[in-house]
């Protein structure tokens, strides 16, 4: 966690508002169902936003995993679905699953699913980057004080263990225990060796933390809360602005914007109308983000 000076504009703001921004994006990802144009548009919007917030650097380690998972989803979903008519491949018939096949429609449908997955990943990374977790959890401090404190301490456990493991590994390295050539089995054996000191260290650490908690009266009865977070006027306006794209989306959907069918064959009744709708929607989505950023920077 960072000091006040190091925090970005979102982390200083009321956490409920930031979460609302992200929740709105999540909602949109499902509102249009699997519409390729809208999903791509939203992906671009969120990617630009994430880039703007400097979240890309943290995303890198997750991208490889997401691509792998996305590829697996793409293949499996395509094989298992029995829709579409434009066949690319017809495979054998398997018990329970039926015929394995791949059609252009299934492939496209699955690809849109992967795009939605990437959107979810980006939103979750933005949550990591933009939301001050402590302040977010403190929103529930009055209602569920013990849950909040336990959750916060659990969040701390991961970096604590990472720190401990780094130190133990450094010690082993200096003893010359680290395998020079890292083959799979040697690496597993080496990691297993380091597990014991890590376990002991984690247990001792947990014990001391528990003792400190007890000595500071945690769990001694009803808690009070020092954190008081009220919405500022500008943030209230921001909430109203957030309603704009939402209202537009509902209105446009009522008018029939965003209709797209994959099966049995592609059907896109009004591409131009959708393009115009997407333009309006993106414009209205950008407004609250810019409003929020400018307000906090001022």
């Amino acid at each position: 966690m960072k000091s006040e000076a190091e925090r970005n504009v979102w982390q200083i703001a009321h956490p409920a508002i930031v979460v609302l921004h992200l929740a709105t994006q999540l909602l949109f990802a499902f509102l249009w169902e699997l519409h390729p144009l809208f999903l791509c548009g939203q992906l671009v919007l969120i990617a630009v936003w994430a880039k703007q917030e400097g979240a890309f650097a943290q995303l890198r380690p997750f991208f490889a995993m997401t691509l792998l998972f996305g590829f697996a989803y793409l293949c499996l979903n395509t094989l298992v679905l029995h829709e579409g008519r434009t066949y690319l491949w017809k495979g054998p018939i398997l018990p329970y699953l039926g015929r394995l096949d791949a059609t252009v429609e299934e492939l496209s449908y699955s690809l849109c699913g992967v795009i939605r997955l990437v959107i979810l990943l980006l939103v979750s990374q933005l949550f990591q980057r933009l939301v001050d977790h402590d302040r977010f959890f403190f929103l529930f401090a009055e209602a569920a004080p013990r849950f909040v404190t336990t959750a916060l301490l659990s969040i701390r456990l991961v970096p604590f263990l990472q720190h401990e493991y780094r130190r133990i590994r450094e010690t082993a390295k200096l003893r010359g225990l680290e395998p020079q050539r890292a083959n799979g089995l040697g690496q597993v054996r080496y990691s297993w060796l380091l597990l014991r000191p890590l376990l002991h260290s984690a247990l001792e650490g947990a014990w001391l933390t528990a003792e400190t908690l007890y000595a500071r009266g945690f769990g001694s009865g009803k808690r009070s809360s020092y954190q008081r977070m009220a919405l500022r006027p500008r943030e209230k306006t921001g909430v109203l602005l957030l309603l704009l794209p939402f209202a537009f989306a509902l209105y446009a959907k009522g008018l029939g914007v965003g209709q797209f069918a994959f099966f049995p064959l592609f059907s896109w009744p009004d591409p131009l109308g959708d393009l115009f709708g997407l333009g309006c929607f993106l414009l209205l989505s950008i407004v609250p983000i810019i409003w929020f950023r400018r307000g906090e920077e001022m």
Binding site: R156, R216, G217, G219, R223, S224, Y226, Q227
Partner: peptide, 24 residues
């Protein structure tokens, strides 16, 4: 190291007071 529980100085300072339910 093991006695600091929260992430900012202010939150750490008020933690024990919150636990015993002092008014704001």
């Amino acid at each position: 190291e093991r006695q600091i529980l929260l992430d900012t100085v202010e939150r750490e300072l008020v933690f024990a007071m919150e636990n015993i339910g002092l008014p704001w």
